[in-house]
């Protein structure tokens, strides 16, 4: 079992004829993902490695049964691409694009509301269900099938954590990078809800960052609704206030959003918080073996 991405997922890649889109479509196929179509307006009727390309997402839905999408289009066109997926009834939309204006994401989220579709990202490494497939940037070799769910706001730090777990013999049900922007399609809480309901997931590893209040909202959810154990790490314990640490979301403002506050909120909610990111794997092992 897994969350969001499973055996039924039929993936359409929006922006498949671009450099990033075609590269990652191939990587995904190599990983075993069912990539059934691509979309690039104006390139309909062509193909990429035998994957049919359409002009519109709706054509990929009607002709190939696409029900999940991966978006690799430039920031100026990405909000439109997400809206097109929502309108076509795609249930899992994963947007890797970096640099989408926050106000565009406000509009996208209003459109998403009530549709039942999940948007992962933007500005995220994507989602991987080992043994099933992936949408996004995560390197293929780090994953292993198993019983731990991974949720993170970071990119390469997520790969480190997954790799660390795999090297310790701990596999994953699904790993999700929700993205580092101030407004993202799916929050920690959305993903925790799904992992809590997934019978195959026994533990969740959650990686937060300074800035915003997503971690605090996750803490409230964990305290009230989660029965499964969690291990957590917050990046940015040494970050100074008022500076944007790469991700638009990672900025401490007005004394709020510090790592110390977030670590405390998680600890109080019962999450096993590690100070040292190199110890996430060990912490997971000790909980799983107890």
């Amino acid at each position: 079992m897994s969350i969001l991405l499973n055996e039924e997922s039929r993936i359409v890649i929006q922006g498949i004829t671009g450099g990033e889109g075609s590269f990652h479509a191939r990587e995904a196929v190599e990983f075993g993902s069912k990539v059934v179509a691509g979309v690039t307006p104006g390139k309909g009727g062509t193909d990429v490695d035998g994957i049919p390309v359409y002009n519109r997402v709706i054509d990929a839905v009607v002709n190939e049964g696409a029900n999940a999408s991966g978006i690799y289009v430039p920031a100026a066109f990405a909000p439109d691409a997400i809206l097109e997926s929502i309108e076509a009834g795609i249930k899992l939309i994963v947007c890797m694009t970096e640099g989408i204006p926050a106000l565009e994401m406000v509009r996208v989220k209003k459109a998403l509301k009530g549709t039942g579709s999940y948007l992962i990202g933007p500005n995220c490494p994507g989602i991987t269900t080992p043994g099933v497939g992936k949408i996004g940037f995560m390197p293929n070799f780090i994953h292993k099938e198993g019983n731990v769910g991974v949720i993170s706001r970071s990119g390469t730090l997520t790969y480190e954590v997954i790799n660390m777990l795999t090297n310790l013999g701990i596999g994953q049900t699904t790993s999700v990078g929700i993205g580092g922007d101030p407004i993202v399609g799916s929050t920690f809480v959305d993903m925790l809800e799904l992992f809590e309901a997934d019978p195959a997931t026994d533990l969740v590893a959650i990686i937060g960052e300074i800035g915003g209040n997503a971690e605090e909202e996750a803490a409230r959810f964990v305290e009230e609704k989660m029965t499964k154990p969690l291990v957590g790490f917050i990046a940015g314990q040494t970050a100074p206030p008022g500076k944007r640490m790469g991700h638009a979301g990672a900025i401490i403002s007005g004394g709020k959003g510090t790592a110390a506050e977030k670590m405390k909120a998680w600890g109080d909610a019962g999450i096993k918080v590690v100070e040292n990111p190199a110890e996430i794997g060990k912490a997971a092992v000790s909980i799983l073996n107890s």
Binding site: S152, R153, S154, G155, T156, L157, T158, E160, G180, I207, E209, I210, F233, A235, G236, Q237, T238, A239, M245, G246, H247, A250, A259, E275, N276, P277, A278
Partner: peptide, 17 residues
Amino acid sequence: MVNGAGLAMATMDLIKL
């Protein structure tokens, strides 16, 4: 010098630890 913002912050944290 690190690739990725999250890992870069985590690396700073590790140096401090």
